[in-house]
């Protein structure tokens, strides 16, 4: 395991741990998701740089585009949740438990 591999793995794992264990606000969950996607962006960019691969050089941008779409969908859901539930606390998302 190279230092670069360790670095982006631990970044991703920190983001995942935050998403899994810090369940208070939807916004923080979305931020953790974005952090995970950015660590993947770094991983893909460094992979491309390390191998000097031309064919693979568009993949970080594709990843970034998709993660931006995902983040915007998440923010739209944040707005929708704020409108229907009045708050973005994940604790209030409890209508469906029965």
């Amino acid at each position: 395991m190279t230092p670069v591999h360790f670095a982006f793995s631990s970044t991703f794992m920190l983001g995942l741990a935050g998403l899994a264990f810090h369940r208070y606000h939807l916004l923080s969950a979305l931020l953790c998701l974005e952090g995970m996607m950015l660590s993947l962006f770094i991983a893909l960019s460094l992979w491309t740089l390390q191998l000097d691969s031309t064919t693979f050089s568009s993949s970080p941008m594709l990843l970034l585009a998709f993660s931006a779409c995902e983040a915007s969908a998440g923010l739209a859901l944040l707005v929708a949740t704020a409108r229907t539930h009045g708050t973005d606390r994940l604790q209030s998302l409890n209508l469906l438990q029965c």
Binding site: L26, L77, A80, T81, R83, T84, H85, L93, L95, L96
Partner: peptide, 15 residues
Amino acid sequence: HHHPRAVEATTKYFL
């Protein structure tokens, strides 16, 4: 349908 339950289900599914 903009129903609170639908929005909640969508949020959970998205996450």
